[in-house]
């Protein structure tokens, strides 16, 4: 409106780039917390890695992974735990609080889109968490265990694309969880369901390929599969060529569908606030 064409788009891009930069910086201010978090990730990595070693000792090639791949999977999951927010938490707690206190009214009056604003901010956060909470555990794991990590930079690049799509899917799920607070007033319940679903269906507990039969089929078709299972399989070199394209398409479809749903709910919720005053 008013601003048209190219200048409108570039103006919007600059705004959301600034929001993303802010999202990065606001997490970067808490250095000690980041360090403590990376330490925790590493400790958990060791615990889970030894559990996996015990399990794969009993059942070699479980889910088609050999021992080294299985341990690598553990360290990837620790690296992506915060980046892809596998267990929930993050911006949605803040958004739920803003909805509960009515501060959301301030956000709505701004000439910016609520969903894009939070998406940009969450992408900024994800970049920070990949650097601050992802690299340390992966390097520690690689120093102690014999990990199956690719030598080709192309595979690493493919992995980053999958992670990016995973972050968007994760955001879209959490945005919906947060918006539920418009109706539930207290978002804690929805946040817990999302935490439970996330920690199981993302493959954080065990790779989804391990689950046999219908359960496995369902788990691999749900959006949470985009968060960890797909990026991990890309880095392990199990997805390449057309399979990789298919995996990307799977992630992108979920991202679009969930973002679309979020947009719809946002419209309804906004109307509700605008008419009912929250």
């Amino acid at each position: 409106m008013g601003v048209s064409g190219v200048s409108g788009v570039s103006g919007a891009l600059r705004l959301y780039a600034a929001v993303a930069a802010g999202g990065f910086r606001r997490y970067a201010t808490y250095r000690v917390a980041t360090l403590a978090g990376a330490f925790t990730n590493t400790v958990f990595g060791f615990i889970v890695a030894y559990t996996y070693i015990a399990l794969w000792d009993e059942r070699p090639r479980l889910g088609g992974y050999d021992l080294s791949q299985a341990v690598t999977y553990v360290w990837i999951s620790q690296a992506l735990l915060m980046t892809c927010v596998l267990m929930g938490g993050g911006f949605e707690d803040e958004l739920i609080e803003r909805i509960r206190t009515g501060a959301i009214a301030v956000d709505l009056y701004r000439p910016a889109d609520l969903q894009l604003w939070w998406l940009a901010s969450d992408l900024g956060r994800a970049v920070f968490h990949l650097l601050g909470r992802g690299i340390v555990p992966l390097v520690c794991g690689a120093l102690v265990f014999d990990l199956t990590l690719p030598a080709s930079p192309l595979v690493w690049a493919a992995f980053l694309v999958a992670v990016t799509l995973g972050v968007v899917v994760s955001f879209a799920i959490r945005f919906l969880v947060a918006l539920s607070a418009f109706w539930l007033l207290d978002g804690a319940g929805a946040a817990q369901v999302s935490w439970l679903a996330g920690s199981f269906f993302s493959g954080l507990l065990l790779p989804l390929n391990v689950f046999p039969g219908a359960l496995g089929e369902v788990a691999r078709a749900l959006p949470w599969c985009s968060l960890l299972q797909i990026p991990a399989d890309v880095l392990l070199g199990r997805l390449a060529g057309w399979e990789l394209t298919g995996a990307y398409a799977f992630q992108a479809c979920w991202a679009l569908a969930l973002l679309g749903a979020g947009r719809l709910v946002q419209t309804v919720a906004t109307r509700r606030v605008v008419v009912q005053g929250g």
Partner: peptide, 17 residues
């Protein structure tokens, strides 16, 4: 909340073009 005051102003700069 978590960022220096100037960051919010830079954001206003972009938001209101």
């Amino acid at each position: 909340w978590d960022l220096p005051l100037i960051d919010s102003y830079r954001l206003m700069h972009r938001m209101y073009r």
